[in-house]
Structure formats: C-alpha cells, structure tokens
Simulated assay, not measured.
Amino acid sequence: MPIVTWDGSLAVGHEMIDQHHEHLVELLNKTYDEFCDRKSKQNLEAVLDELIDYATYHFAQEELLMEKVAFPAAEEHLAEHAYFITRIGEIQKEFLAGTSAISLEIITFLKNWLVRHISQKDLELGAYATAHEGRPVVIDLN
C-alpha cells in the first residue's frame, strides 16, 4: 500500500515538475514498500540511493526553471531544497554507517516534507513558471 498516492491534488500545473513529482512519489512508495517488506539492507540502500539521486536531479531542474523565469521566491525555495538534501544525506550516512536504521519516523518525515513542499512551494513555482515561461524577462535598470 502506498504511503502517498499521486493524484490531481499534488499536481502543480507544470508538466515537467508534475512528471518529476510523480516519479518522486513512486520512489518514496518504493522505499516505504522495501521498509514494510523488511527487505535486506542492500535493497533499502539501493532504493534510498535512487530517491536521493532523483531528488537531486529534480531540484537542479527546478532551480534552472526558477532562473529561467526569474522566480521571485527562488531564495526561499532553494533554502528548502538545501535543507532536504542535507537532511536526507545525514539519514543516508547514518544508515550506511549502521548507526541508524530506516524507520517509520524517517519515512514519515520524507513523506510529510515532500507533500508539504509540493503543495506549497512547488505549487507557487508551477503557477509562476507556467505564466512566465517563454516571456522575455524585463529588468528595470532605473
């Protein structure tokens, strides 16, 4: 059973972002399934690596989009991405070192962060990018 269901409530209205988010939700659900099925540490490690790699790729693509459309809330958005990458890196490091296991608390943190970020920050970015993509950026030099 998935921990997050991809549906219209998570769509932000930007094709690339929505495709990426759908894949992130799939990877989070895969991580949750591996955890629930009590798969080997290697299986859980592999899916966690995939989730981190894809999140990093997705954030980079969003950041390019923010730059392209001169997204006014980019700094705050980037700070959220940095926090997530730092936190998930800590989780991965502790897991690989054997000092911490992947727990339901960690999976819940990942789910809550992702759903909140999508439904708040990415919804704002999606609307702004859709409205401003392809338009020339006007810079007031006065």
Rank of each mutant, 00 (worst) to 15 (best):
I3H: 00
I3T: 01
T5I: 13
D7H: 04
L10E: 09
L10Q: 12
A11M: 03
E15Y: 00
E15K: 02
M16E: 06
I17K: 00
I17L: 15
I17F: 01
I17G: 02
Q19S: 15
H20M: 10
H20C: 11
E22M: 03
H23G: 10
L24S: 06
L24C: 10
V25Y: 07
V25S: 10
E26C: 06
N29S: 08
K30E: 14
K30Q: 01
E34L: 13
F35L: 13
C36I: 01
C36E: 05
D37A: 09
R38M: 09
K39C: 12
K39F: 06
S40T: 04
K41L: 15
Q42D: 14
N43A: 11
N43E: 13
N43W: 07
A46S: 13
V47E: 10
E50K: 04
E50N: 01
L51R: 09
I52N: 08
I52R: 06
T56Y: 12
T56F: 13
Y57K: 06
Y57G: 12
H58W: 11
H58S: 13
F59R: 02
F59V: 00
A60S: 13
Q61E: 06
E62R: 01
E62W: 00
E62G: 00
E63F: 01
L64G: 01
L65N: 00
L65M: 06
E67T: 02
E67G: 07
K68R: 02
K68Q: 08
V69S: 06
V69E: 09
A70P: 05
F71V: 07
P72N: 09
A73W: 03
E75D: 15
E76W: 05
E76S: 12
E76H: 08
H77L: 08
H77I: 00
H77D: 08
H77M: 05
L78T: 04
L78M: 12
A79G: 08
H81G: 03
H81L: 05
F84H: 09
T86H: 04
I88P: 12
G89H: 03
G89V: 10
E90S: 13
Q92L: 14
Q92I: 13
Q92Y: 12
K93F: 08
K93G: 10
K93R: 14
E94H: 02
F95D: 05
F95G: 13
G98L: 02
S100H: 04
A101T: 01
A101Q: 08
A101R: 13
I102E: 07
I102R: 09
I102S: 11
S103Y: 08
L104C: 11
E105F: 14
I106Y: 04
I107D: 08
I107P: 12
T108R: 07
F109Q: 09
W113V: 05
W113K: 02
L114A: 09
R116C: 14
R116N: 15
R116E: 15
R116W: 12
H117I: 12
I118H: 00
I118N: 02
S119K: 05
Q120W: 08
D122Q: 02
L123A: 09
L125S: 09
L125F: 06
G126T: 09
G126M: 12
G126P: 12
G134Y: 07
G134F: 03
R135A: 11
R135D: 14
R135I: 10
R135P: 06
V138S: 14
V138Q: 08
I139D: 05
D140I: 11
D140N: 15
